[in-house]
Amino acid sequence: MSRRAVLALGGTAATSTLAGCNVMNNDSNTKPFHDGDWRSYGNGPSNANRVASGMPEPAAHTVLASGDWPYTPPVVHEDVVYFAAGREVVAVMPDGNEQWSQRLDTEVCGSPALDPSRDRLYVPTRVVQTSNGPDPAPAFVTVLSLSEGEIKHTFRVGDRRTYGLSLAEGDIYARSATACVKLAPDGTEQWRQPLDPLIYDEYNLGDSTVTQVAPAVTEDGVYVPDRNAVVKLDPGTGDERWRVTVDTAYAASVIDDAGVIQTGHQETVAVNHAGEVRWRRDLHSRGAAAVAANGDIYVIAGDLHELDAATGETNWQAHLPSEGTAAPVVTDDSVLAVSGDVRAFRRDTGGILAPDRKRWEFTAVHAAAYSSPVIAAGQVFVVGPMGLIALAPEKSE
């Protein structure tokens, strides 16, 4: 039996002890946990941050890899977890068995993405600015072998730092501090569109938390935040198609059925694919949104808010102990948020401040509020000062 099958069975067994925790609207077909892959930030180039699954309560945790105060979530493929922090990238199994590790000459500065068809892992990296270093300091995408960890290429995509990257049809879309760049699978630059650095240090966030700003990519457009706007670029040429003002936009753009959602420190804005504003909310969020399959939008703005896709109005909200730059993750029946601890909330409970909204709370670990959780391989993965942490639905024997 494969490891994936074992994890799926283990999750099912654990969930049977948690009455009501894996069913939404009496749908008994809801999976207890997503047992598949998570190949990039947002779980795909739309940055939707969702999986088709339920959400049983974790019963145990394991530190899989240490890190130099990590800022980026992992990616997962075929039950192998790839984790980048500081100057090191590690491939590790959910049971803690390390597959390989690789030291880098540059520093990790964004969420990785992987392409199993080409056996490639792409990691945003940068050269740390020093008094005798290059000025401006270059920003890269470092390419490693997925199976062995060997460094294959280093592609420069701008200056200062690489905020994030997305893969679509094998092509690489990277947002650095100075540009959005499209690279072919072999690294050939297809186009480069200059952009302004995002505003982080001016708001006392710390530039080191700018690790989850992957371009949102569709066949029709590439969506990225500029300093005070969300911008749509032509995927073939990189030409700007439209620009909509969003006050202090510094999180990833997120695609929904009607267009794109852009959060910002001063407001959250929904725009259709033609560049027309659907709605604006005076809702201040430092992290990107998550979008459910039915269109519900989830934003952390002090509290966790569920927004109506058509109007942007808050349907319900739930308290969080702190706010950061991490987007939530939405499943079939729950929303998962990290804010010091890890909390799951029911999506289908009525009332804007329903007392039974919270499904569970896991306080045994400190989960960084600037790195989104990942649901894959039958477990939840979070990062914090200890490094990469796996939350399992049952304790091992």
Rank of each mutant, 00 (worst) to 15 (best):
S145F: 01
S145Y: 06
L146E: 02
L146T: 00
L146Q: 00
L146D: 01
L146M: 12
S147N: 13
S147H: 11
E148R: 14
E148W: 04
G149V: 00
G149Q: 08
G149F: 07
G149K: 10
G149E: 08
G149C: 10
E150G: 12
E150S: 14
E150W: 06
K152D: 00
K152P: 01
H153D: 15
H153Y: 09
H153K: 14
F155W: 15
R156S: 12
R156L: 04
R156P: 02
V157A: 05
V157W: 00
V157Q: 06
V157T: 09
G158C: 09
R160M: 14
R160N: 13
R161Q: 13
Y163K: 04
Y163L: 07
G164S: 11
L165W: 06
L165F: 07
L165V: 07
S166E: 05
L167R: 09
L167N: 05
A168K: 13
A168S: 14
E169A: 15
E169C: 08
E169V: 01
E169Y: 13
E169N: 14
G170L: 12
D171M: 10
D171V: 04
D171G: 00
D171Y: 13
I172T: 00
I172E: 03
Y173C: 01
Y173Q: 06
Y173A: 00
A174Y: 00
S176D: 06
S176G: 11
T178N: 11
T178K: 10
T178A: 06
C180F: 05
C180Q: 08
V181E: 01
K182M: 09
K182S: 10
L183H: 10
A184F: 07
P185N: 11
P185H: 06
